[in-house]
Nucleic acid binder design. Structure first.
Lengths: 351, 351
DNA sequence: CTGAAAGCGCTTACAG
DNA sequence: CTGAAAGCGCTTACAG
């Protein structure tokens, strides 16, 4: 590759002039600029941005640490990050931790991989990234994973209690509230809920959202309609079966993820019940599988793209001297209901 | 951040000595090395790798251009790239083109986005990446997309006729051959095939594999068992219905992707046919949905991780002065059958 | 074994 | 408007 020196020689100017021609044309005459640009194009000269970065002490690079890029939520978050980064002329150094391969299902225990994280943030910092976005594979508390750094880090799909650090997730409470409201709007009153692991904060939030929607519409919360699951299909099947064989069979089931909803499909088939005619079903996550069930599953879509976008917006904003906007420290983005074929309104007579 | 100069001052040595302590301890005494390292740790000094890169003219960075990270094949390829890159101490600059958002379904027409590609390779080169891996969203000819570059580029999940450029994909022919063989091994003889778009080279290869397996086992190729699809679920449904209502109903169907296999499930349900009792079904791709059908779909898994690994291996190998290994210019990796629940052996009496 | 010095490819006050 | 020069933070022959 040619250097600025060679361009300068070819154009019969100083390297300073070449630099100005490229970066700040106002400083030189249009004439010399044209002269320089001609040889720049001739030689197809591309400035070495490594050298520039060293000088100006800015890299326009942000580090993205993903816990596991093969988990369904991550690619779309990266997509959102990339989109926003591009707008602001930032680029991404990707560090994918491969958490599952590394520590199996122990991801809850963040102490198992603080070592890796320490190393990767260290590498990222030595590469002079201006900020870091951390993308969790599961929404959980990740406090202490990343040491205090001189550069900002924003967390997505997980949260932290480090003061000063930003966090962007989606609103579990609101999503469950709206899903339940939707079912109620379809005249359902016997609405069962299949939960995830009760230890999960997300799960708790969603239960609260479900209950609030119920209360608001004056439908009594019936504990028999609350089945504890574990996010897995088998649990959805078991819960579905219990629910569907109970004396006071619900007319609608809200499964707290699409995978467990798959288990409800299994139970319904086994019992000869048709969805949505005999049972309305709604899932959560809008994963690829939700589209593959038959009938296609109505579900809550996660705002993954927006999470990535917002996280990047926040990061880049906090990088600029005069912070234009101010963001809440903990954003919770809105999920969107995607209506497909698994929910049917109850006729008034069926109430 | 501290610099090497400050470390030198604190340790009472020259910057050269600090550098040696960090990079080539053999050049200095153990004693002074210890002295230097002590202050390095005290200050938590991290060398600025931008500065180092400028000096040594190596960045240990590879550029990864993905057409669309939200397409199912891409994350796992990136995963494989990351794994291999890490082993060799390389890092990744990710440029995700967002092809779908940009040009919709026109991805076949590569001329629609040569501009974007030109810009991103240009950026990548100015950032001094040592090589580029291109990850297609769909396997197709992509010749001419990237201009001749002074650095190596290897193509995955697509191919090119640029001489000198490496390509790594999976073996469609072999995969279809083995899937068909498997069905034959299960005593099936009436094996129907639902193809994708006939214009696709992959589709052609798979048809050939299917036919070869048939011939080898002396089962006559029956053109009525060959239904042309288009990769979409609806087409699988239509083809499935025709097949399953024909006089000479096949005992097994091989759908050339998992999505169309979903359509076959639909047709089977509609016709009251049970899978696998009344019909064995096998898919292709091992997408998330294949696991969500009921019963779970037996399918061919794509070696995505390996594709990423191999591509990176090839790239990094071609970067080293004395190329240790030599690789075929066009690798075709082997798919793996994943046996689940949608295939049943035919009893001899049923033949 | 250790240090002084040049230089990687840029940018940017500063002087003219 | 233009150029000479210093300097970003490193590495690495070279001399001692």
């Amino acid at each position: 590759m040619a250097t600025i020196k060679e361009i300068a020689k070819l154009a019969n100017v100083s390297t300073a002039t070449v630099s100005y021609a490229l970066n700040d044309p106002s400083k030189i005459s249009e004439e010399t600029r044209a002269k320089v640009m001609r040889v720049v194009e001739q030689v197809n000269y591309r400035p070495n941005s490594i050298a520039k970065s060293l000088k100006v002490k800015r890299t326009n690079a942000i580090g993205v640490i993903t816990e596991d890029i093969t988990v369904f939520n991550t690619p779309e978050i990266i997509n959102g990050i990339g989109e926003c980064a591009e707008e602001h002329n930032y680029h991404i150094i990707l560090e994918n931790i491969r958490l599952y391969k590394r520590i199996g299902n122990n991801y809850q225990d963040t102490s198992k991989f603080t070592g890796v994280i320490k190393d990767t943030t260290s590498v990222l910092m030595s590469k002079q990234v201006e900020g870091i976005i951390y993308v969790g594979a599961h929404c959980r508390d990740v406090t202490g994973l990343i040491d205090k750094t001189p550069i900002p880090v924003v967390y997505t799909y997980c949260y932290t209690q480090n003061e000063g650090d930003y966090t962007v997730n989606y609103d579990d409470f609101l999503a469950a509230y709206e899903a339940t409201k939707y079912l109620i709007g379809m005249n359902h009153r016997k609405i069962a809920l299949i939960t995830g692991l009760m230890g999960s904060g997300q799960c708790q939030e969603r239960i609260k959202g479900y209950q609030k929607a119920l209360y608001e519409s004056q439908v009594l919360f019936n504990p028999e309609y609350l089945k504890v699951g574990n996010w897995e299909r088998e649990a959805g099947y078991e819960a579905g079966k219990e629910l569907l064989t109970s004396v006071n069979r619900p007319t609608a089931i809200f499964a707290l993820n699409d995978v467990m909803a798959g288990g409800v499909f299994d139970a319904a088939v086994e019992l000869g019940l048709k969805i949505p005619e005999d049972l309305s079903l709604i899932g959560f996550d809008n994963r690829e599988c939700s589209y593959s069930y038959s009938p296609k599953l109505t579900t809550m879509a996660l705002p993954l793209d927006n999470i990535g976008n917002m996280a990047t917006e926040i990061l880049i904003n906090s990088l600029s001297k005069q912070k234009q906007k101010s963001f809440p420290q903990h954003s919770k983005l809105k999920c969107a209901l995607v209506e497909r074929e698994s929910v049917m309104p109850l006729l008034k007579g069926e109430l």
